[in-house]
Computed example of a mutant assay.
Amino acid sequence: MEGAAVVSRRAVQRLRGGHPWVFRSDVERRPSQTAGIVPLEGPDGAPLGYALWSPLSEISLRRVETDLSRTPDAAWWHEKLRAAIARRAPLAGEANAYRLVHGEGDGLPSLVVDKYGDVLVIQLLSAGVDAWTDAIVSSLVELTGCTGILARNDPAARGREGLPREVKLLYGEVPRTVEVVEHGVRYLAAPWDGQKTGAFLDQRENRVLIGSLARGQALDCFAYHGSFALHLAKKADQVFALDVSAPALARVHEHAERNGLTNIEPVEGDAFDILRAWYKEGRRFDTIVVDPPAFAKTKSAIDGALRGYKDINLQAMRLLAPGGLLFTASCSFHLSRGHFFEMLQDASADSGRAFALRAITGQPLDHPELITVPETGYLKGALLEAMS
């Protein structure tokens, strides 16, 4: 086919296995056009569908369509976005903030769309999808009735695609903060400059889980703006929200007031140091959440990350009162589920205590993880009970 990208036999096998990526080394003939959508062919000329084309990226092609009769155009984008949004219908009664498009998980590689109330925050993370910005924005406005769309195009992935890293208003107006209502809890998201696209939407169901079980003295480690702490405070007697950032803790205080909660105490400091000090002081907690940032941002960082995860979980296990509950999580993609649970086993053994596994958690409905595309999954969590 004229203008088609021809890929190697190795790439064909990968595509047949359900993974949409083709790496630069597997492109046998580059398409002549600039970034966008191009036809795909195998080395024998057999058509393979259509893919997003990124001329400068290590991931050169991302397949988006296998049906040769459906040439991707503006109408195609509209239908794909409509289907992704429809999958989130069950969430509308639970929260006003959730992910509408999860990249490869929704068959739309390198595109992220998050909803915060009446506004959307999007990330266009490849040159191929960036070329379709206007069509994507137009469809999102029509499908959602949003009042504003902000592009949080500041991740490092954009630089690897030869694209500018920027935060840019694409449509309407987007305020500096938006109130999120999540299972009755209210907090502020910061679309322009907050973590990720403004808040940590992927932990929504986990916050509800541990919040429903919380009791006594509770501790939220790496609290950031207190999303876990707010849920814990509904049932716990007292919640300590621990974070190294004073500005983040000021937002925790603001969120507590917004929810009429008087039992949250912000604590500023390094979680590793403070948990060790509290253990020496003989303090104990009935409910603990350990939700650290990604310690392993690259594959080479795994060994160091495992030491960090084990250390903080060991300190939390030592602080947990008998019968207490620990919810712990990792958002590091490079840390596999196997590594995560081996780490918890090692921490439990070193603590000298017995812990029962009460629940294993993953990603919520709005962050679908495809079993043939490991890159769509990164979040793993465990609920543990101290048996001794």
Rank of each mutant, 00 (worst) to 15 (best):
E182M: 10
A233Q: 11
E182A: 10
E179A: 10
V101H: 11
N153L: 08
L169S: 05
N96R: 12
T147P: 01
V167P: 05
R186T: 14
Y187Q: 06
H102T: 03
I149G: 13
L219M: 01
R204G: 04
I122Y: 04
C221Q: 05
P164F: 07
S126R: 00
L230I: 07
A127I: 04
V141Y: 12
I122H: 03
L150K: 02
V185Y: 00
G216C: 04
Q203G: 02
S212H: 04
L120T: 07
E166F: 00
V180T: 09
L100V: 11
V137F: 13
R160M: 10
G103K: 01
A97F: 04
R186W: 14
A214T: 11
T147E: 15
S227H: 11
A233C: 11
A218V: 09
P191I: 09
A135I: 02
W132R: 11
V141A: 14
E179L: 12
H225A: 10
L125K: 00
F200T: 04
V113M: 06
A151Y: 08
H183K: 12
S126H: 00
D220Q: 08
R207S: 12
G211L: 10
L100T: 04
I136P: 06
T177K: 13
F228I: 08
E182P: 07
G103H: 00
R204L: 07
A229M: 01
H102N: 13
K196V: 03
L100F: 09
G226W: 05
R207M: 06
R204T: 12
L201W: 10
L230A: 08
E142K: 14
A199P: 02
C221D: 07
A151N: 13
A131S: 14
L213S: 08
S212K: 15
G107Y: 01
L120Y: 10
D193W: 04
V137C: 12
S126K: 00
W132A: 13
C146A: 14
E179P: 07
S126C: 01
G117I: 05
W132M: 01
L209D: 09
G128M: 01
G128F: 02
V101I: 13
G148P: 05
D106E: 09
S110L: 00
S139G: 05
A223C: 08
D220K: 04
D114N: 10
G159W: 11
A135P: 01
D118T: 14
G105T: 09
G226Y: 03
E205S: 14
R160G: 09
G211T: 11
P191K: 03
L143S: 06
S138H: 14
G103T: 00
L232A: 05
L120K: 13
H183I: 09
N96F: 11
G211Y: 13
A157L: 14
V167T: 15
A131T: 00
D220V: 06
G184K: 05
L124W: 06
D154T: 04
W192K: 05
D202M: 10
A135N: 08
H225T: 15
P175I: 09
D193V: 02
A189M: 13
Y187A: 05
L111F: 02
K115A: 12
S126I: 00
S110I: 00
E173S: 15
N206G: 14
Y116R: 03
